[in-house]
Amino acid sequence: MKVTILRFISAATLALLASQSAVAGDVVVIANAGTNLSAGEVRDVFLGEKQFAGSIKLVPVDNAAQQESFLAKMMQMSSAKYSGNWTKKAFRDGLAAPAMKSGDAEVIEFVKRTKGAVGYVSSSPSGVNIIK
């Protein structure tokens, strides 16, 4: 009986951990409905290397709640390196680092109403372009 209970607790703990990491790993990149981007261009947008999509000026925004996941998964870089990159970009090219939003709701609201906006959230919302 004790063994069964222990097995159940272990299985439940593993399942919980697995579900948590799956949530942490899910990052959905979204863009304003009128902005077309490919998944391969997302990295360049958030490094300040790509500033335009056609004639539209891109406005990337960061999401404080999802940034760690996004940097690890999409950018393959640490927060310090990302920040350092923008310091250099601002100094050499006069570019502004992406504005930081507090969470999904703020990012979605900004992306919906801002032409050229690109952000990332934890799940796919409606009314925006999902970058795949």
Binding site: V59, V61, T87, A90, F91, L95, A96, A99, M100, K101, F110, R113, T114, A117
Partner: peptide
């Protein structure tokens, strides 16, 4: 909020470093 977001997106104002 909209105004502030617009501002922080770099399309207005003078970022100082």
């Amino acid at each position: 909020t909209s105004g502030m977001a617009h501002h922080s997106a770099g399309s207005a104002g003078i970022p100082l470093h």
